[in-house]
Design a binder for these strands. Sequence first.
DNA 1: ACCTGAACACCGTTCAAGT
DNA 2: ACCTGAACACCGTTCAAGT
Lengths: 223, 223
Amino acid sequence: MGRPEPATETRAPLSKELVLRTAVALADRHGIESLSMRKLADELGAGAMSLYYHVPNKEELIDGMVDIVFSEIEPPPLELDWKTAMRRRAHSTREVLNRHRWAVGLMEGRMKPGPAGIRLREAILGCLRRAGFSIEMTIQAYSVQDAYIYGFALQETDMSPETADDFAAVAEQQMDTYTDVLADFPNLVEVVGGHVARAGYDYATEFLFGLDLILEGLDGLRG
Amino acid sequence: MGRPEPATETRAPLSKELVLRTAVALADRHGIESLSMRKLADELGAGAMSLYYHVPNKEELIDGMVDIVFSEIEPPPLELDWKTAMRRRAHSTREVLNRHRWAVGLMEGRMKPGPAGIRLREAILGCLRRAGFSIEMTIQAYSVQDAYIYGFALQETDMSPETADDFAAVAEQQMDTYTDVLADFPNLVEVVGGHVARAGYDYATEFLFGLDLILEGLDGLRG
DNA sequence: ACCTGAACACCGTTCAAGT
DNA sequence: ACCTGAACACCGTTCAAGT
């Protein structure tokens, strides 16, 4: 597992930065359920308890990991019109969340937003206010967009098994389970059988469709 | 904790039903992170290992719990026009998810959908097809709505601390942390300070706003 | 300042066994 | 058919101690 440090070589000294970045990498590779303080320390070539010098506990470790994810999201560029700017940050969010699938359910929930999360929030609110939305409408517009973006990411993450093998296994098993009652679910058969199962199902296009539906709807509500 | 069974009284016999329903109640009360096989068995007055006769493992326990949640969601009523029917099921979903906050992140992800989840899916697809949407548009329309509904529930669950004390603590702490740099976040100050912090912030209204934005947008795209 | 091992109170699950 | 305790391989975290 990992690469065990040769005892002769001195290990890179720990730091909050290094601990967090390694934790993110580990979660990217193996998912967050399998991320333990002990394995993380191991990956760093350190004793399990060394982590606690740099991070108070696992909860705040995850807070820090989430803020790293926030820092990778491109804020709405100032020079673009509001819809294009929002599309850009939406796409960037989706892309980043696909790189860090473990983070999807955790972005909104942290009670302690980090600096990157705060900065992004500020940039988005500013973009909407400058576009002419009232304070009340800015809140609404922000809320719909984020609900959609994070909800879509949740679907996408959850519905795409990690490996092709997983996918085949799941598909086959569902067939087994429901084959005898398929007649009761004509619409499911029509939709799943006819379209979703096609390999070319394109999440990016689907994401854009819903996003533009929302952005166009909002455009009429500016002051 | 709970009510320890008096040794004289014979305990209700276990069953998959009872195990699942007790697990849901426990998760409702204490969150899903604190739900362990051992505590669940304890609550049932049984030994920890008794559960494994009724449920193969924790993963499938949770699958079963999620399907109970699905079973509580009202499907789109057949006799209503499509938008009203969809609004009904959307509200029902939000309400059920507020009763079972632990479930929000788990509804879409389970690789083994249960019967209730399947039935609900079928009903929604049927409603959209009857409304005149093409197969392709049905998929899109379904996807936008669910992304929004589950994304909104995610925000709402995550942003509402369990207790008023939690809320106060978080608010105060955020103030402490960012007071010195508040000048850098004028839009955040304006929006949070001016509106969101007001006690009367109404999630139901906000939910409806975004939902109708989407439904109206979709209405123009029927065949 | 930075790192550590032993110990504690937990987990999920296997297994061989009891009624 | 239904339930069980002991045991195994894990967890996060406290504490007192090492350099």
